[in-house]
């Protein structure tokens, strides 16, 4: 499956800024179906791991309170153009997706 994680990483004066956009419904489990009134089951990303080369620079723990199709930006010291950035998420159903990009 092609990755749906869009990643842009830029290094500037020794600091790399990463911006990413994931594709996910981020259902809290609190909403109800408008027609049937049935609760819509929770389905959201619980954990996002961001790596620079093999080093974990950030782990995000999320609830369903993060907006649909989540946006995440972070920064770290170091990083050269061409270095690999890898972002992986895992949701509450155990589904996972990984996206990679190079620092520009």
């Amino acid at each position: 499956m092609p990755s749906n994680i869009k990643i842009r990483a830029k290094s500037n004066n020794g600091v790399t800024t990463v911006k990413s956009l994931m594709s996910h419904v981020m259902e809290t489990g609190l909403r109800k179906d408008k027609e049937t009134g049935d609760p819509i089951p929770a389905h959201f990303i619980q954990e996002v791991t961001a790596k620079w080369k093999d080093q974990v620079v950030m782990t995000a723990l999320w609830s369903g309170g993060v907006s649909k199709n989540p946006y995440l930006s972070f920064k770290f010291n170091g990083g050269e153009p061409g270095d690999a950035i890898e972002i992986t998420w895992v949701d509450n159903e155990g589904k996972t997706e990984t996206g990679t990009a190079e620092i520009s």
């Binding site: 620079w52 620079v57 995000a60 993060v66």
Partner: peptide, 13 residues
């Protein structure tokens, strides 16, 4: 993690 700058940006409900 190691080397991370204390900065995060996201969107919440």
């Amino acid at each position: 993690g190691e080397g991370a700058v204390p900065f995060v940006s996201t969107r919440i409900k």
